[in-house]
Amino acid sequence: EGEHLKAMARKMAIEKKKEESERAAYEAEQLQAQMKAQAQRAHELAEEKRRREEALRRESERIQREMEEREQEELRAHLGARNIKVKEGEKLEKTAVIKDLMSERIKEQQELERRMARHARNMDHLERARREEEAPFLETAWKE
């Protein structure tokens, strides 16, 4: 009788242990699954983020490229307007071109000024020569 009770108790204990271990195993499994899912989600999020960033980067790169292209076009147009030939595919350095254009502009301005000065000198000298030659005529006109 005592044996039986003992056996029963042991059996129950074993049973209980088994149940516990099973539960623990199940819980562990659950946890693992959960963690896995979490990891999966995290991964997905990261992936999503990466993709977004990638898209953003590409977009900004595109914008940058477009801007550069437009800038290049503009620079080309500027240079074209001044009859400066640019090789196909040649990359133009903005600051350098602006500097060039500025110096070009200054040069033109100086050229205009030189031209004006020359023109002014000619006008002045022509007027003086005319007056010099007119003087005797004036003199005779006055004497009359």
């Binding site: 000198r121 000619n122 002045d124 000298h125 022509l126 003086r128 020569a129 005319r130 010099e132 030659e133 007119e134 005529f137 004036l138 006109a141």
Partner: peptide
């Protein structure tokens, strides 16, 4: 109005270089 005869005007314009040298 200038008293210079037109032919004289033309002559001055043609020979302006000579005057210019002196005026400079």
């Amino acid at each position: 109005p200038s008293l210079l005869p037109p032919e004289k005007e033309a002559e001055i314009a043609k020979n302006l270089k000579q005057y210019t040298k002196r005026y400079d």
